[in-house]
Structure formats: structure tokens, C-alpha cells
């Protein structure tokens, strides 16, 4: 493996997103939503203004869990299939670059763009809120930002995998939407349904572990378990094994969600 061609491909993908203002647009979306939630999130309870970092993060988690997977899937679903359909893949592969290097370069470039807009968008909010936050609160917020980046990386990895498997862009976009529905909307309902149908008698012990099979749930657990208040609020402390709430373990699971789809994509792309 050579680093130079990976860097060239990654650089091109990243600067393309800067040039076409994709990064700016996504960062602005994050900033606006985060500020709105921080200041007006309590409007239903009759109060307007910043309340607490825990409250803000809990609200942001609910937003990010929908938004970031969608953005990541849209960003990466045509990474390879787009080149193939346009007819530019053969020329790229005729260069002194391996398929793995091309795949990794594409992923890293897109991941860089997504991470940059996430950090810039939410980071701007942190700066605005800085005067109202103590060190612990900033630490929590930083944890939220980092886990948001990881969530994006995981779904981007899934998107790149789709882009290798799909035979055309239309199918790839369908698969990306399907994947978003499954992980973001359907997965938890299925688990819940299974629990209700079995009356909670079967599978109760493996339930928390099944949540790890969904990067969106891993993200949720990562953030919610980092805060004592929220944990009690959600009533999760009693059902969730403490060992699983270890942020390092969850981080590792998230890392696996980044590496595994990329590995499968590489295996398929080489065939």
C-alpha cells in the first residue's frame, strides 16, 4: 500500500466538497439547528433561552441521529458506482493505484469533509455557548461532537460499501435510503416489537447487546450514558448493563462499524 495515491484521491474528494460549498452548507445546517435547540428547545415548557448542557445534548442527539446518517449516506452512496456509471473508473484504475488505495482515498476524503463540517458546525455553537459552560459541560459537548463524527464515519463506511455493491446510481440511492430507514427508523421498533411479542420473557438479556448491531444506537448510548441526569431521566440505568456503557468499549464498537463495511467493500471491489 502506498500513501501518496491515497492522499491524492482523498485530497481531491475533500477539496471538491469545499469548492462546491457542500462543507459550508452542512456546517451551517448543524450550527443553526444546534443554536435553535440550545435556545428554543424548552419553548414548549414555556421558557426560552439556554437551559443546561445535558438538556441541549439530549435534544441534539435526537436530531443528529436522524440527520448525520442521512447526510453521510447521501455523501458516499455514489463514491464508486458514480465513477463506474460516468465511465471514469477505468481511467482511474489504469493509473498506478490499487483498488484498495482508491477506495480508502475516496473514503478518507469524504470522511474528512463530513468530519470538518460536523466539527465546524457544532464547534461554532460551542464557542457561542462558551461563556455559559463550565469545563465539565464543555467536556460533555466535546464528547458529543466526537461521537457525532464517529456516527458519520460509520454511516459513510456503509454508504461506500453500497457504492461498491450497487450496479448503478439509482439502485445505490435506493439502497442508501433503505439503509437509513432500517437503522434509524425500523431497527429499534423491531427490537421493541420482539420484546413486546415475547412478553419480555425471552431475549431480555441480549437486548442491550443487540443495540450494538446498530451504529445509531451505539451513538445514542454513548451520549446518554455519559450523563448521569439523562440516564436516570430515560430510566435506562436499570435495564442497561453497566459494562456496556464503557465509552471505550462503545468507541471500539463504533470503530468496528467503520472498519467492517469498508473491509467488505474492499473484498467486493477486488472481485
Amino acid at each position: 500500500m502506498e500513501l501518496t495515491p491515497i492522499g491524492i484521491i482523498a485530497g481531491k474528494e475533500f477539496w471538491d466538497r469545499i469548492r462546491n460549498r457542500w462543507v459550508l452548507a452542512v456546517a451551517l445546517v448543524f450550527t443553526v439547528f444546534a443554536l435553535a435547540i440550545a435556545y428554543f428547545g424548552g419553548a414548549q415548557q414555556g421558557s426560552v433561552g439556554f437551559r443546561s448542557i445535558e438538556f441541549t445534548i439530549a435534544s441534539l442527539v435526537s436530531l443528529v441521529i436522524y440527520l448525520i446518517p442521512l447526510i453521510a449516506l447521501i455523501l458516499g452512496f455514489d463514491a464508486i458506482v458514480g465513477e463506474r456509471e460516468r465511465g471514469s473508473l477505468d481511467l482511474l484504475l489504469s493509473m498506478p493505484i490499487t483498488r484498495f488505495e482508491l477506495l480508502l482515498g475516496k473514503y478518507l476524503g469524504l470522511a474528512g469533509a463530513l468530519a470538518f463540517s460536523t466539527v465546524a458546525g457544532f464547534g461554532l455553537v460551542a464557542i457561542v455557548l462558551a461563556t455559559q459552560l463550565d469545563l465539565a459541560a464543555l467536556f460533555h459537548y466535546f464528547g458529543f461532537m466526537l461521537s457525532s463524527v464517529l456516527l458519520g464515519m460509520a454511516f459513510l463506511s456503509l454508504a461506500v460499501m453500497i457504492s461498491v455493491f450497487a450496479s448503478d446510481r439509482t439502485r445505490a440511492s435506493g439502497m442508501a435510503i433503505g439503509m437509513w430507514f432500517f437503522f434509524v427508523l425500523v431497527f429499534d421498533l423491531l427490537l421493541l416489537g420482539a420484546l413486546v411479542v415475547t412478553g419480555g420473557h425471552y431475549g431480555g438479556e441480549i437486548f442491550p447487546y443487540l443495540l450494538l448491531a446498530n451504529p445509531a444506537d451505539v451513538f445514542r448510548i454513548l451520549n446518554i450514558f455519559s450523563m448521569e441526569d439523562v440516564r436516570t431521566l430515560y430510566g435506562l440505568a436499570t435495564v442497561f448493563p453497566r459494562a456496556l456503557a464503557d465509552p471505550w468499549l462503545l468507541g471500539l464498537v463504533m470503530f468496528a462499524w467503520i472498519v467492517a463495511p469498508l473491509g467488505i467493500a474492499n473484498w467486493r471491489f477486488r472481485k
Binding site: 491524492i8 481531491k12 469548492r19 460516468r86 465511465g87 471514469s88 481511467l91 482511474l92 493509473m95 498506478p96
Partner: peptide, 23 residues
């Protein structure tokens, strides 16, 4: 390649620079 396709958003010079770096 037959029916060569390039990136529409790059200029002619940038296109050559991109492939030149890769090569």
C-alpha cells in the same frame, strides 16, 4: 479510454494536474 469522461468541475489544467500526480 473510449468515450473518455473527466470531472466536470475541474478545469483542463487541473484535470491534467490530478492525473499527473496520480501517475
Amino acid at each position: 479510454p473510449e468515450n473518455v469522461v473527466f470531472y466536470e468541475n475541474l478545469t483542463g489544467l487541473e484535470t491534467l494536474q490530478f492525473f499527473s500526480r496520480l501517475k
